Amino acid sequence: MSVATLSAASSAAAAGRLAGLRLPATVVLSFAIVALVIAWSLAPGLFTSQDPVNGVPAHKLLGPSVTHWFGTDHLGRDLYTRVVYGAASSVTSALIAVVIGVIVGGLIGLLAGFLGGWVDIVLARLVDILLAIPRFLLAVIVVTALGFDTTNTAIATGVSAVAVFARVMRAEVIKTRQATFVEASFLQGGSRWYILLHHVLPNASRSVLALAVLQFGLSILVIASLAFLGYGDPPPASDWGLLIATGKDYLKWPWLVYAPAFVTIAAVLSVNRISRWLRKTD
């Protein structure tokens, strides 16, 4: 093989690696939208200087403009400001829900898949019971028992996601437990807990990462739906679902619904796109 051929092959391989690292445009856009929403939740004051609670009555129900990007509501409050400040509760609540689902559901699936026997049977039946109840209905039942509050809606959403994480983790643990390197570790004298923590858990948790990202977007949607039904914080809170619920009473001014709904949909779709990209990358 000539030097020119080797050089061409090396260049092609390098180009292939660079192409593999290049993110699709939709993924880049999704990351940008999610980063913007997270920035809103961490430092809303950097993106708007207006008051999200107190408005100017003379400016009520103004349409979108340079001064008020999303228009104003029936109390003269800047809708863009309320959407920005509402991101904090939406992101925080979704994060709480995902953490609850990952920890509780992951632990159930890990123990059921690794220990097997009667432990697997009992935990698997528990998961089947949770899966038999529609997730949104389960969230409504839990938040009704805990009380109407944004934190309680986050807990309710997390409880409704436990069964999904448990099912995925159990399947991954069973698959990993049958791998050759796990059997070799057993033969070398490794304890069950050592193998569980150092071999099974790291390999089984890869699929859970993509599911956690997907669940983050779904949690935003569920929490917004619960807030729309009145299960979240009462006014003057600016949860996205509550903004949509308030705007539906003023259909002559559609931006009161369109603006928070568009932000909610954009955030959820962006998270879903990132989750699909992570699954393909894995």
Rank of each mutant, 00 (worst) to 15 (best):
E183R: 15
A204K: 08
A171S: 11
A184I: 13
A210W: 06
Q215D: 09
L221H: 03
F216D: 02
L226F: 11
A210K: 08
M169N: 00
S207V: 04
A224G: 11
H199E: 14
R177E: 10
W240G: 00
F216C: 05
W193D: 09
N203R: 07
D233P: 03
T176Q: 05
S219R: 05
V200S: 06
F181C: 13
D233H: 12
L209K: 00
S185V: 06
R192G: 10
G190N: 10
S238T: 14
S191F: 06
L229E: 12
L187M: 14
T176R: 00
F165A: 14
L226Y: 09
F186H: 14
G232D: 06
Y231E: 06
A171Y: 00
R167M: 07
R177L: 13
G190E: 13
G230M: 09
G232V: 06
F186L: 15
M169Y: 00
H198F: 11
Y194K: 13
F228C: 08
A184V: 14
S238R: 10
L211C: 04
P235K: 09
A212C: 11
L214I: 10
A204P: 00
A204R: 03
L214H: 12
Y194P: 04
A166K: 01
L187C: 12
L196G: 01
P236D: 08
L211H: 01
R192E: 11
I223W: 03
R206F: 15
D239R: 08
R192D: 15
A204Q: 02
